[in-house]
Each structure stands twice: as C-alpha cells, then as structure tokens.
Design a protein around this nucleic acid. Structure first.
Length: 707
DNA sequence: CTAGGGTTAG
C-alpha cells in the first residue's frame, strides 16, 4: 500500500514542486528514503525544478548511494554551469569506490564542453580510454562534442573514428564542430559521407547547424540546394531547421524568403522564430516590419526575451525611431534587463546612431553596465570616433588595454580610425605594431584603417605597403581606402589608375568607391573625368548617387570656378539637396565671389539648420572680405541671439610624443617667436617659388624645418 | 540518470 502510494506521488511530483515536497516528507515518514530508487527519483526532481541545494542536502543524507545518485548530482551541477562542483563529485565518486560508468562520463564531458575546458577534457579522455568506454556511442559522441566545442576539430575527428557504431548524434556533433570553425568545405564533405551511410539518417540536428554557415549572399545557391534537400527528406516542418533558415535567408539577402518560412510555420513558431524574423527585418532596413512583428508578439501575448530586445533595439537607428528607441529603453529597464550585456550593448549602439545628442546617453549606459564585454568597449570607442571625439576613443583604448579583456579587429579598426582623425602618426604606428603582434593586421577592416591612417599622416608609402599586403585582393574597402588616400595626397591620377585596375580585376565597386574617386578628381582638378563618373554611376555601375557624391561634384566644379555649372547640377538632382550639399555650394559661391547666390543659399541654410555655426561663419567672412561691416555685425548679432558659438579651427603637430596645437593668431606656444619667424621665411620662399624664376629651380630647393 | 542542433549587440 505504502509503496503504491509513494509511486503515484512520485509520478505526480514531476510537474509540481509542492507535490514533490509532500512526497519527500512522506518518504521520510515511512522510511522510504533509504530506498535508493525513491531517493534518486526525488533527487532528480529537485534538480529539474532547479533546487540544487535541496538535492545536495538529500544526497548528503542518503545512507546509500549508487552510480545513478552520483550521476544525477553531476548532471545537476553541469546543467547550471558549475563544472568545478561536477568535477569534485566525479573524483569523490571514484574515491568512494562507486562504479564510474558511461553515464558519468557523458555528463561530465557535457559540462567540460560548455565550459570549453580543453585540458580537463583531455584528462577525462584518458580516463575514458582507461575504462574502455571509447567505443561507447554515448561517451564517444560526448567526446566528439567536447572537442568540437573546444574548436579542436582534428581531435573531434579522431574521437569520432573510435566510436564503433556512430549514430546520427555522433555525426551531427562532428559536423557542428566544423561549422564552429567555419570550415564549410569539410562540413559539407561530411554531410555527403553521412548521406551515403545507410546506418544513419540525416535529421534536424544535421541541418540546423549547417545552415548557420550560409550567412552571406554568395551562398544563396547553396542555401537553396540545402532547402531542397530538407524538403526531399521531409524535414521542412522541423522548428530548428526553419528557424535556422529564417536567419540564413535573411543573411543571404532574401528576407522575403525568410518571411515565407516564418509564415509557413504558422502556429508552431516559437520564440526563436519570432526573434530570428525580427533580427532579419532589422538587418535589412525593413525596420517597420520589425516593429510590426514586435507589436504582434505583444498582441498575441508571446513572451519576449533578451534576443527579442537586442533585435528590436537594433532596428532603431535613425532620427525617425528615436522616440520609439527611448521607449524601448524604458521597457528594458522595466523588464530588469538593463544589466544584460547584450541588451545594453544594443542600446549603446542605438544611442550612438541617433543623429542628435553627443555621447551622453551611450556613455552613461556604458558606465553603469557592470559586466562590460569587448562589444561594449568597441561600440563606445566607435561612437567616440564617429562623433569626432577621437581623443576619447584613444583614451578608452588605453583603459581597455589595462583591463584583461582581449582586443580584436573591431578595436584596432576603431583606434586606427581615431589615429587618422587625429593625424597622430606615432600612436598610429604603435597601434599598427600591436595589431601585427596579435595578427589582426591582415583583417580587411584593420588594413583599410591602416591605409587611411598612414595617408592621413602623409606617409603614403606605408599606406601603399599595407595595401600591397592585403590577403584578399577583392577587398572593396581596402581599395576604397587606398584611392581616398591618394586623393587626399593630391595624387588624383594614381587614384584614377587604381580605379581602372579595380574594374579590370572585377573588384566590386560601391558608393564609397565613388566618393573616393570624385574626391580624387576634385583635388586634382579633373573636372571632365569627375562629371563623367558621376553621370555613369547609375546607368553603368547601378549605384545610385547619394548626397555625398553630389557634394563632391559641387566641390569639383567650384574648385574650377564653375559656379553656374554647380548650380545647374544641384537643380538637376533627383532629390532635394541636403545641408551638406548646400554648405559645399555656399563655400563655392563665397570662393568665387558670387555674393548674391551665397546670400540666398545662406538664408535657406539658416532656416533649416539654425544651430550650425558654419553658415554664420561663412557669411561673416564673406562680409569681412567685402568690408560690409554692418552686415557682418548683423550676422554676429544673430549668432549671439541664437546662442550659436563659433568652433575655432585647430591645427596640431606631434613632435616626440608631444602634441602641439595651434589656432589662428595663436601666440601661446613657448616657441611662438621662432615659429612665426619660420613662417615668414617659408612664405617668402613660396612667393619666390611662385614667381617665374622660382619654378625651374623648385626641385633643387630643400627646405629645412627647425622643429 | 546518458550524447548533437536553431536567435543577439560592434
């Protein structure tokens, strides 16, 4: 009677913690706790409900324990990431003379796998061999998985070969290992081998990880083939495969196909399906659809999690989503997710991308985040760099270096961009050395930043060296950087040559390529070439000209004094010109002495961007040139009334780790007297060179600088 | 009481 009652109690305890407690009390009362089977069942239930403490107490009080009791405790600790406790239990188990079996090994190895403790894994492998469990399919698969998670695919392969009859789980674990190290070829080769084996069948566990490899438009066809195979095997309703396909289609550039898979799931979609679809939409600038899904989730009372929030927060980038983004931040706080690193990271980069506001919001979030990871640091540094606060970016880099977080290619790219912004060669070189040491030098983003840094610092030869060393000859961003480097260096012809090489070698061109090449034309006075390129962008290269291209073209025409042509260009634009184009045009008007046109453009600019000092300063300078003092005074008055401050322009030079900064009419430098004398000398020399007799001798003159 | 698989931020 007692045994029967206990058995039924144990059965119902599986889904209620309260019933479990009652069962435990009853078992104690009738002395059944000494029954190993009963105690093991209670132990397991405590662990399933997450009450590890209760479980351990019961375990300690058990008069007798068998392998099952020990194994249950081991897996209890592995599943909550407490590997050290599992390991202690494992060693105690052996010490107590309890029989270590296949179950013990697979559970321990699972913990080692998720902790990626390769050396411990190797030790356990030794024990597995000693115990003769190598060919056991469960232990063997655990070993394969352990090595795979530690990214030791060779070892995983060897362990796999030891399994006498590998099943689909063994195969899947091995394939997943090659997926993890992004060895696409081997992963698909193994898939082919697996297909030929009659003893194993490919299942959802085979395809889900494989699909995550297909994250680039170049895999579009492969993805379709895999999809076809999935259909052929009748696996198209497997949730994990569908979820992986939603992401893959989005990454391969076909969100509509993602949506089709998502819709096909109907009511069987789970949280991951929703999250993947939201992330897919926000990656592909289909922000509105992402927002719609998010509200639909709420309408349907679907639980959200951190992935939902990282996805939806990253959909808020532009000005138009600013207020929604802020409400999301509020929601995150309400849900108590603000200290979750990934969520906070997404919020930080959201604040950085808002056009207004400097770094205040992003920075305060960053500072209050308790566990910052590399992404947090990289985001904040990129933010500083993008907002023109490069000194802060560099400062944060040194903070980061003094922490024990390893830096990566994103870090180097951000720091090097700041170095080029600051034109600080020494720091740039030091960073270059660090990048080389940690072998991130060959990363295309790092290389491009190096090229930009060296060209900005005037060491174009070094920029060229970096460019020559790029591993992927088809890196568009590296070519763009080099073209821009030569453009800034005044070697527009070299830029144009590189551009034609780029076309000959079938390197993909993008909108940045055209900004770079138009800048090159502008700086070298190649008017005709520049205009032809602008006009060919859309019809020949299928790249729609953006504002920056028009601005570059206006600048190009302006430098040649063709104000009217510039005006015509602006009027012919398919979109109405943005402030950047207008400001460029204002500069052109001023330089060409077109006062009337300048006044017109300026008054328009003052209306749309009243807070920007540029327009006021341009006008003020123009009136000074024309000696129109009254007008100049009006402009100054307007600035004062509107609270607009002139931002002085600075120049600086780095000499032996010391930055020497100057602005107009500055006499604060300790060597000011000598500097001004030298400037006078140089000016005279330039004037002389500019005269007829100077030109022929120009190449013979070496100018020595005193500092 | 054992083993594998799908989502996130720069």
């Amino acid at each position: 009677m007692k045994a029967l009652l206990l058995a039924s109690l144990l059965e119902s305890s599986l889904n209620s913690f309260q019933k479990l407690s009652v069962t435990h009390c009853y078992a104690i009362k009738c002395g059944s706790v000494s029954d190993i089977y009963v105690s093991n069942r209670i132990l397991d239930s405590y662990i399933k409900f997450g009450f590890l403490g209760y479980a351990h107490k019961l375990f300690d009080e058990m008069p007798q324990r068998d392998s099952v009791s020990w194994n249950t405790m081991i897996s209890g600790y592995t599943s909550c990431g407490k590997l050290d406790n599992s390991w202690c239990l494992f060693t105690d188990m052996k010490r107590c003379g309890c029989y270590v079996d296949g179950y013990s090994f697979s559970r321990l190895l699972k913990g080692i796998a998720s902790a990626k403790r390769f050396h411990l894994g190797e030790q356990v492998h030794g024990l597995v061999i000693k115990g003769g469990y190598e060919c056991n399919v469960f232990v063997g698969s655990s070993l394969v998985d352990m090595y795979a998670k530690c990214e030791r695919v060779e070892d995983a392969f060897e362990a796999f070969m030891e399994i006498s009859e590998p099943n689909s789980v063994s195969w899947n674990a091995l394939i997943a290992g090659f997926v993890q190290v992004r060895d696409i070829e081997t992963a698909f080769w193994l898939l082919g081998l697996m297909e030929m084996k009659a003893a194993v069948t490919m299942d959802d566990g085979t395809f889900a990880p494989l699909l995550t490899l297909l994250d680039n438009p170049m895999f579009c066809n492969l993805l379709k083939q895999v999809h076809a195979k999935v259909l052929k095997l009748g696996l198209e309703h497997e949730i994990t495969i569908c979820n992986a396909m939603i992401s893959s289609y989005a990454d391969c550039g076909s969100v509509s196909d993602s949506k089709r898979v998502f819709d096909g799931l109907g009511g069987s979609r789970d949280l991951i399906s929703w999250n993947s679809m939201i992330a897919g939409f926000s990656k592909h600038e289909q922000k509105e659809s992402a927002f719609e899904l998010f509200t639909e989730m709420h309408r349907n009372w679907i639980e959200t999690d951190i992935y939902t929030y990282t996805g939806i927060v990253s959909a808020c980038s532009g000005e138009e989503h600013q207020s929604f983004g802020k409400s999301l931040h509020g929601l995150v706080i309400k849900k108590g997710l603000e200290q979750v690193t990934s969520v906070s990271n997404a919020l930080i980069s959201m604040y950085i991308q808002f056009p207004t506001g400097v770094m205040k919001d992003a920075l305060s979030l960053f500072e209050s985040l308790k566990s910052k990871d590399l992404v947090s640091w990289n985001s904040i540094m990129t933010g500083f760099s993008q907002k023109g606060l490069s000194e802060d970016a560099v400062k944060f880099f040194s903070y980061l270096r003094s922490s024990n977080i390893e830096v990566d290619d994103y870090t180097f790219s951000a720091v090097l961009r700041s170095c080029s912004d600051l034109a600080t060669l020494q720091l740039g070189q030091q960073t270059h050395a660090l990048a080389t040491k940690s072998s991130f030098e060959s990363n295309e983003f790092v290389t491009s930043s190096l090229i930009l840094m060296y060209s900005k610092c005037g060491v174009i030869e070094n920029a060229r060296k970096c460019f020559e060393q790029i591993s992927s000859e088809h890196s568009t961003i590296a070519w763009n950087a080099m073209i821009l480097g030569y453009a800034q260096h005044g070697s527009g012809q070299v830029s144009l040559d590189l551009f034609s090489q780029m076309r000959n070698q079938n390197v993909k061109l993008d909108h940045v390529t055209f900004t770079a090449i138009l800048t090159a034309c502008s700086h070298t006075g190649l008017i005709q070439e520049g205009l032809e390129l602008l006009n060919s962008m859309e019809p020949v290269y299928k790249i729609q000209p953006r504002m920056e291209h028009y601005a570059a073209a206006v600048d190009l025409l302006g430098r040649a004094g063709l104000v009217n042509k510039a005006k015509e260009l602006i009027e012919s634009m398919p979109l109405s010109p943005d402030p950047m184009v207008l400001k460029t045009f204002l500069g052109v008007c001023r330089a060409c002495g077109e006062i009337e046109m300048a006044t017109q453009v300026a008054s328009h600019l003052l209306e749309i961007e009243p807070e920007d000092h540029f327009t006021y300063v341009s006008l003020s300078h123009m009136y000074s040139d024309l000696k129109k003092w009254e007008e100049k005074a009006n402009v100054k008055k307007m600035m004062k009334e509107r609270g607009v401050k002139k931002v002085p322009g600075w120049s600086w030079i780095e000499i032996r780790n010391q930055v020497n900064a100057f602005n107009a009419e500055d006499r604060s430098h300790p060597l000011s007297k000598e500097i001004y004398l030298m400037i006078e000398d140089l000016t005279q020399e330039m004037q002389w060179l500019d005269s007829d007799k100077g030109i022929d001798q120009a190449s013979l003159i070496g100018v020595n600088f005193v500092f």
